[in-house]
């Protein structure tokens, strides 16, 4: 399982525009958004704006950096050591 990131700008309708599409083996599995200065203590963190399939999550988490976000996503994908 290898993840591939592709930077995009996303229209959240807020200053949270810096985003990364996350692909796993060519499939889009998540959209991560970097939180803008609007978010105070959370500014600069990465938010799971959308997740697909096993990455869909009813309580979308926020990550300190992209490495942490990718580790979380990888763990939820089939083939991960602790996948469902």
């Amino acid at each position: 399982m290898s993840l591939h990131l592709q930077p995009v700008r996303i229209a959240t309708g807020t200053p949270d525009t810096e985003s990364q599409l996350v692909f796993a083996d060519g499939f889009l599995v998540a959209v991560l958004v970097r939180l803008s200065d609007d978010h105070g203590d959370m500014a600069g963190m990465w938010y799971l704006e959308a997740g697909f399939g096993p990455v869909e999550y009813s309580f979308p988490p926020t990550f300190t950096n992209l490495d942490e976000a990718q580790a979380w996503i990888e763990q939820r994908l089939p083939g991960a050591p602790h996948s469902l």
Binding site: H39, M42, P60, T62
Partner: peptide, 12 residues
């Protein structure tokens, strides 16, 4: 909602 969503929505 998430904190992020609440923050965005309050700003809106």
């Amino acid at each position: 909602l998430t904190n992020v969503h609440v923050n965005r929505t309050l700003r809106a």
